[in-house]
Design a protein around this nucleic acid. Structure first.
Lengths: 190, 190, 190, 190
DNA sequence: CATTAATCGAGACGGTACGTCTTGTCTTGCA
DNA sequence: TGCAAGACAAGACGTACCGTCTCGATTAATG
């Protein structure tokens, strides 16, 4: 059923755009009732977010054998999933909606932020295992930096998505190696 | 009258957030009729855009004498401007709405993004002048990274704003020095 | 506009019945927005009630020259307006809905009960003027008796509507004359 | 199990009223599943009908020795049974729903209306036996008048229930004696 | 100075999406 | 197997809001 919702949202976003998308239309297209949508997602924005962003972005940063390769791939995956035509609108609007409600913040953090952070951490742990890094860096900062750069690049600067992954990965790789000898601050990565 | 509208929009954004802002409320707060608003702005989004973005650039990176100091101050300024309770909601939602309209994207870029990028560049040019950096880095990437990290830290990770400036500045400083020997890429803005 | 709503309700009651009537359908049929309906009526039941019952019932009990004639006419008018095919459902359901909410009780009383009571009083005042009655009777009781009898006759006993007016008028006329010498109780008719 | 359903329906009618009663709530209160309800009753209305009307006739007009006394007592009994806080909602709404279904009308008449009419008739027959009345009046009309007045007094005029019995009984008594010399009409039930 | 024209506030209007609710059916998992 | 628990499709409810429109009242400009 979640798949049907996701598919319906993507079809309709392509057909009528973000502003023209209605929950009723999604339900009809998916052949389900509106209640089944609201049972899963608290708001329309959350539904759209889950349908456009959620999924593969967060989960498995496959091992390419080097930190630089892993980071390039990670950036590429994030970019590709964020670059959906309507994703900009969806993500930003969702963040705006969420910010006002602590309960939604909590939900959003648990469902999207934490898994993504864990994925990032996995990549860096591999690098530590490979001795490319002496230790894990400040994960809070790294996570905000890596994803935030993609966000800003795409949705604020509106630069070409294809230009980013390699540049960002090189920058992040050098930065990690340059800052790795500093112990991370007191808030150790979870 | 335009001033009354602008003031009302800003007050209400702070009070009820972006999603809770209605044209009727703006009219009432401004003591005018809705028709007078629609005589000036074609849609609600244009009204909000005009009231929030218009001339709010605020990048004044005063010279602290060192790159690390400048970056810390820069981060602090960005954080302080972004951390207004309702600014989160307003900015993110506005980005979402803007993304759908290329004309607004263009205006947003010219009025907001470019000046900020110039401010960032000014800080780094100073560091070059001070010989702290051998050359200007990839400015597109640096700009996306610096602002994006703040954005993500505040509005996605929802971490403590006070924790960020120093950490980010140290990270950015080390990263810049580590990557400075690489020639920046062609730097073609997309 | 009220006329358009009333007409739409009556058409749709005839077409789809009481249970099948929706506010959205009424709005569409009337060529107006749902909000315009809810601006006038607090609930769907109130709208239906107003469209089926309200109007001529309450207002002008035309003078026939005698108390018996007036009461017969009054009963006939009430019966004819209450005997709309769906009026039974509408009235009873409305009363059921209303009973739970003091605000609706107040509204209902002001809009429907009081005018009808005033109409009843007008008929009896005429009889006093004609010297058919020495004084006004206990209006609270008379009003409840006259309308209540119609209600019960139609919707509880389900007797033939045409049988009622003459019988009720004769009964009421005789009863009024028999009880008229008693002073009405302390709550004098308003 | 039927007993559990019936009890749950009655409790919930008293607590939340007719409009607020849901099948899900009945099932939960009865500690059973919704399917078990729908196995017994085709619709919600049938369930409520079965739970409320079934054997609740309650007309016991005990002899007080005089017509006025009997009528006062009769009014008091009717008022007391109708004045339960939630009974108003339930009864009126049920009448509304019933009206749409001729089969339910028939059952309602046989189970509820006829016994009450017989009770009324019993009171008047006693008065005839006592020579307080020369003959039985138009029973259809009297029955509609007596019960209808209570209905209207309570649920339309929303007057104080305690004020009614004595006034109604006096009125009815005088009216009966005033109209008793007229032969009742053919009395054919419609 | 008086009359006309323009502009304003106030808010009703048509239209439409929202998120909630309920009905009656269908599925699941425990006893 | 039979039931409680509850998910499901369908769709109405009443609310909110947008952008348009109408209405008087107050200005402003003009004859």
């Amino acid at each position: 059923m979640d798949a049907a919702i996701t598919a319906a949202v993507r079809q309709l976003l392509a057909e009528v755009g973000y502003a023209g998308l209605t929950v009723a239309a999604v339900a009809e297209r998916a052949g389900i009732g509106k209640a089944s949508i609201y049972r899963r997602y608290a708001t329309k924005h959350e539904m759209i977010f889950a349908a456009t962003i959620h999924g593969e972005v967060l989960e498995a940063p496959l091992d390419t054998g080097s930190l630089l390769g892993d980071l390039t791939e990670l950036a590429r995956v994030i970019v590709s999933h964020l670059h959906h035509p309507a994703a900009a609108s969806a993500l930003m609007s969702l963040l705006g909606e969420i910010a006002a409600d602590p309960a939604l913040v909590e939900r959003f953090t648990r469902n999207f932020v934490e898994p993504e952070r864990a994925g990032n951490a996995e990549v860096l742990k591999r690098a530590v295992r490979r001795r490319e890094l002496p230790q894990l860096p400040d994960m809070d900062l790294f996570h905000a930096m890596f994803g935030g750069t993609v966000l800003s690049w795409l949705f604020i600067a509106h630069h070409d998505p294809d230009d980013l992954p390699e540049r960002l990965a090189q920058f992040a790789c050098a930065a990690l190696q340059a800052t790795a000898h500093q112990p991370p601050p007191e808030n150790a990565p979870s």
